[in-house]
Write a protein that binds this DNA or RNA. Structure first.
Lengths: 109, 109
DNA sequence: ATCGTTAATCGTAGATAAACGATAAACAGA
DNA sequence: TCTGTTTATCGTTTATCTACGATTAACGAT
């Protein structure tokens, strides 16, 4: 047996309950949305510009149009952004509620 | 040509500079670290307990020991946590600086 | 109706992640 | 020294991500 404890609260803390906290999944999904440099830039761009057409986002990134479209899809699925069809173009904007939720979760760590 | 603009700041905004902002990569890496439910739970556990032995983390999660070890490795590589060897055990704790950095980046969005 | 533009989707290839069991390494105690 | 404990690593399998070109769908303008 190992009874040595050289660091406080290290080996001698009470056992942890093996329970899954429910927000971990939601948290991970939101974090995952911005877990890629391109998506971080897209989010920042949309926050800074209020709204942005897909083509402008493509032009601002060194990626193919199809790749950007996929990143936009990921962001849309996370709820962080939403797209609105405007003729042949699609106008993307931030979803303030989800962004706020992400901030809450991170700050609440 | 498409000149219709039904939404403000949508099609008629000035062009975006195709420049890569330098913190996007750092941001993405930190976000990636918590982009998995298990890692979110680990981080929360460490924040709430100050420090924690690997075995306790394994016990708290419904995952194999080797899998947890991999998640710990990811978190360590991101700098969010650090491990300290304590005999045969390893004691993990949060790196407050990196956590603060993550919070700053998210709040600064 | 046709043409050009815009953006999503498809198909594919390569890389990476996630999960596990098995093994190895490091250590304390007998 | 030998044994049991703890954790990291290895090897493997499966799944998902990322990136691209090509194609398709939707739309406005002519």
């Amino acid at each position: 047996m190992y009874t040595r404890a050289t660091r406080k609260n290290c080996s001698d803390s009470p056992a942890v309950a093996p329970k899954v906290d429910p927000t971990a999944e939601e948290f991970a999904k939101l974090a995952w949305a911005i877990a890629h440099p391109a998506r971080v830039q897209i989010v920042r761009m949309l926050i800074g510009r209020e709204a942005c057409v897909c083509g402008e986002i493509v032009a601002a990134l060194p990626l193919a149009q199809s790749t950007v479209s996929q990143h936009l899809k990921v962001l849309k699925e996370s709820g962080l952004i939403q797209g609105e069809v405007d003729g042949p173009k699609v106008c993307y904007c931030i979803n303030p509620d989800r962004l706020q939720r992400l901030k809450m979760l991170v700050v609440g760590l």
